[in-house]
């Protein structure tokens, strides 16, 4: 079986997803406002991840979901076998 493509035209996809996209962007905006109103300082590393994620959303190349995942991920370490297993 070959890779199945959605047969729905782009205009229809956007029509179906528009309100959901709007709602999720609004939700993120409200959460960031909530964070601004809160007292004290927040975790800098987490804030940097949030900013990196938001930046990826404005990119035009496909694969944004994968890049957002990576922005919130710990890096892979090449030498982990030697460190853990001595090989």
């Amino acid at each position: 079986m070959t890779t199945p493509q959605t047969e729905t035209p782009a205009a229809e996809v956007l029509e179906q997803e528009f309100l959901l996209i709007r709602a999720k962007i609004l939700e993120i905006a409200a959460k960031l406002d909530r964070l601004d109103r809160a007292e004290g300082s927040a975790n800098d590393a987490q804030l940097r991840q949030v900013q990196a994620g938001l930046k990826i959303l404005q990119e035009t190349e496909p694969g944004r979901a994968e890049r957002v995942q990576l922005a919130f991920s710990l890096d892979y370490e090449d030498g982990w076998r030697e460190k853990y297993l001595g090989k």
Binding site: Q69, L70, F72, S73, L74, D75, Y76, E77, W80
Partner: peptide, 9 residues
């Protein structure tokens, strides 16, 4: 956050 590194390991 551990998924990518752990999956590769």
């Amino acid at each position: 956050e551990d998924k990518y590194k752990g999956t590769r390991m």
